[in-house]
Amino acid sequence: MIKCSTTAILLAAGIATSAAALEIGNEIVATHVKMQSIDDATLTLSELKGGKGTLVVFSSSRCPVVLSWQKTMVDIGNTYSKKGIGVIFINSNDPDAKGDTFENMKKMAREEGYQFPFLADSSSEVARSFGATKTPEVFLFDADDKLVYKGAVGEGGRSVGDEIWLKDALDALLAGEEIKKPVTKSIGCGIDFRP
């Protein structure tokens, strides 16, 4: 009788698996994976890293939680990309599973005024390498490419009084201060990994 590992069985069944999630202090990964941006350029994380840090946001053009955070995320992206932070939004969803198409990505970026790259992770390899499982889910790296914050954009997201943990982390990073909440729980839509 042939014995198969659980991983082999899951892979044979076409079920996507992720690597273990990056932990605080880990280096950025998947930096040379080529992804198509909404302006039709082919880019990698290594080309988009910022001099003072890098923010990677796993996003979507359809997830209701992403949409509820959209204004805040775009404001953060547009603001901090001008302060030396490389800001990259990535869509790792299978468009056949959720209709999260490249055209929808372009439309969202145009309508919301993105001033930073929005990339399609065509194999979901980048999300798998990060251990990302939800949208939105954020990973903030310092100038030495070490993870200093991961998790949610903030608490709640629908009212003015909500705490924006990502903004607090970015401000602390730029000021050379300790990030008070380096890990928060990401709540959102599960990523539909591409086969």
Rank of each mutant, 00 (worst) to 15 (best):
E178N: 11
G77V: 04
P195F: 04
W165E: 08
E163V: 15
E112M: 10
G176L: 15
T42F: 07
I9S: 06
N26M: 06
D94Q: 05
K185N: 05
G151N: 02
K52H: 12
S81Y: 00
W165G: 06
K83N: 08
G84A: 09
I85W: 01
G154S: 08
D171Y: 12
K180A: 15
A20C: 06
K98G: 13
D168Q: 15
A143N: 01
V57N: 10
F58Y: 07
C4E: 13
D39Q: 13
D40T: 07
E47L: 09
P182V: 02
L67Q: 12
K52Y: 06
K98A: 05
N78F: 08
P64S: 06
K34T: 14
E47M: 14
S5Q: 06
Q70C: 04
V56K: 10
I164M: 06
T79Y: 01
I28T: 01
D75E: 12
G151M: 03
V65P: 00
S124I: 03
S123A: 12
K52G: 13
G84S: 07
A21F: 00
Q115R: 13
K134A: 06
A97W: 03
D40V: 04
W69N: 13
V29D: 03
L55K: 05
L166Q: 08
K106G: 09
L67H: 02
S68F: 00
D96K: 15
I90A: 11
F193I: 01
F139Y: 15
K98Q: 10
R62E: 09
E163C: 03
A13I: 00
W165T: 13
I90S: 13
D171M: 12
N104H: 14
T7W: 01
L55D: 06
T42Q: 11
G190D: 04
I191L: 08
V153D: 09
S159W: 07
N93L: 04
T72H: 09
K180C: 03
A169C: 14
S37L: 00
N104E: 11
D144Q: 15
K83V: 08
G25H: 07
V29L: 03
T42I: 12
V57T: 06
T7R: 09
G86K: 01
T42S: 11
Q115N: 12
V29C: 02
Q70L: 15
G77W: 07
K181N: 14
L10T: 08
T133A: 06
E155G: 00
I88N: 01
